[in-house]
Nucleic acid binder design. Structure first.
Length: 354
DNA sequence: AAAAAGTACAACCGCCTAAGG
DNA sequence: CCCTTAGGCGGTTGTACTTTT
């Protein structure tokens, strides 16, 4: 069964929006909120389908959208998150306030992807093209560790994006709600809207850091229950009263589809103290075990490319650096390991300075 | 100055998922 | 359960604009 296209019914308008159309849509939403998108065009006097209206609003007319050139920081964030989670534009967009997934996607396709390609890096794998089929070190264990990390982080980011979506749905006035999401400090967000508070970003990396894989940071720990077999799988999460840690671990609540009663307990327990959490999720146990193994930073970062030493056309881009070379291949094969560290450090910066 | 090629981005398309009947 | 619908997502296209030849 194929569904008829929404715009094929009743000779609705397609193509670019006119300023008059925009005005009608804006005025209607300002007054009534969008409500049911399908019903909106008729009520607002627009010859458009609901879907077209929704896209126009979310990608262009919303008052909390930032337009114009992407900043250095934004470029950095996009590339780093893309290296971790791929083309999950909506998930990436949750880390770039006031940017839409569509805008980020376009920017990636028209700017960043080309830049990486030009320097000989596969924009999908973030590895040098000549090495895209295998890991740099050839060490399958390290690759597996990395894979686990990426898997975990991907799930976390997706869950986070879902949280944002869900919280948006709960607010009746779309304009008001989007202001809340984009600008209010986490603690000011209505409890029913965002529980737990939205994590800053890359918190699984932060958890690893706390575990001692990356640094000697202290103050919280994340570890299996003594005597417990991770296969069971039961873990204890011991949390310091540290909001960033709380946020990072909080996502587990989402990722593992915690049962209602546990969610309640979780919400009552957070953001401090200790709790035991049981999950049936096998991959979670695998990931957890993999990350619990002591893995040196140099191994973890294997497989990531240096994108900092790239000879960019754009002098303002973070891809522009001092190690300028004419040929992308040369750049990548030069001191790859050292550059990997630089690359990963930039991710750490992102973790530590969200 | 005009045509061709390249670029940027808004908008569309089709698929997927969740929710509700 | 199954079906329908709304809304979200990522991929792709169309077109206006800019740069190059």
């Amino acid at each position: 069964m194929s569904r008829s296209r929404c715009c094929e019914k009743g000779g609705l308008k397609k193509g670019p929006w006119t300023p008059e159309d925009d005005q009608k849509l804006l005025a209607y939403i300002k007054e009534h909120g969008h409500g049911n998108w399908r019903a909106l065009p008729a009520k607002a006097g627009l010859q458009r389908c609901g879907k077209s209206c929704r896209l126009r609003w979310t990608n262009y007319l919303r008052p909390d959208i930032k337009r114009g050139k992407f900043s250095l920081q934004e470029e950095q964030t996009i590339i780093q998150l893309h290296a971790l989670i791929g083309n999950r534009w909506s998930a990436i967009a949750t880390h770039l306030p006031k940017r839409t997934d569509n805008e980020i996607k376009n920017y990636w396709n028209t700017h960043l992807k080309k830049r990486l390609t030009k320097m000989g890096i596969d924009p999908m794998t973030h590895k040098p093209k000549k090495d895209a089929l295998g890991s740099v070190s050839g060490d399958s264990k390290d690759a597996a560790n990395l894979s686990h990390m990426v898997q975990w982080e991907r799930a976390r980011l997706e869950a986070e994006a879902r949280l944002v979506r869900e919280s948006k749905l709960l607010v009746s006035n779309p304009i008001q709600q989007q202001v809340i999401i984009s600008s209010a400090p986490a603690q000011n967000i209505n409890k029913t809207l965002a529980q737990p508070a939205l994590p800053p970003c890359l918190d699984v990396l932060k958890a690893l850091q706390l575990q001692g894989l990356w640094s000697k940071s202290t103050g919280a720990s994340i570890f299996p229950v003594a005597g417990d077999d991770l296969e069971s799988p039961t873990f204890t999460l011991s949390l310091a009263a540290n909001s960033s840690v709380t946020c990072g671990v909080g996502i587990i609540r989402e990722v593992c589809q915690m049962p209602e009663e546990l969610k309640e307990r979780w919400d009552n327990t957070m953001p401090s103290q200790e709790m035991t959490y049981t999950t049936e999720s096998a991959w979670f146990a695998d990931s957890f075990r993999a990350m619990s193994e002591s893995t040196p930073l140099s191994n973890i970062v294997e497989g990531f490319t240096d994108i900092l030493a790239y000879n960019s056309d754009d002098k303002n881009s973070f891809l522009a650096g001092d190690n300028i070379m004419e040929n992308g291949d040369k750049t990548c094969s030069g001191n790859f390991e050292e550059n990997n560290n630089t690359y990963w450090n930039s991710i750490l910066n992102l973790v530590n300075n969200p």
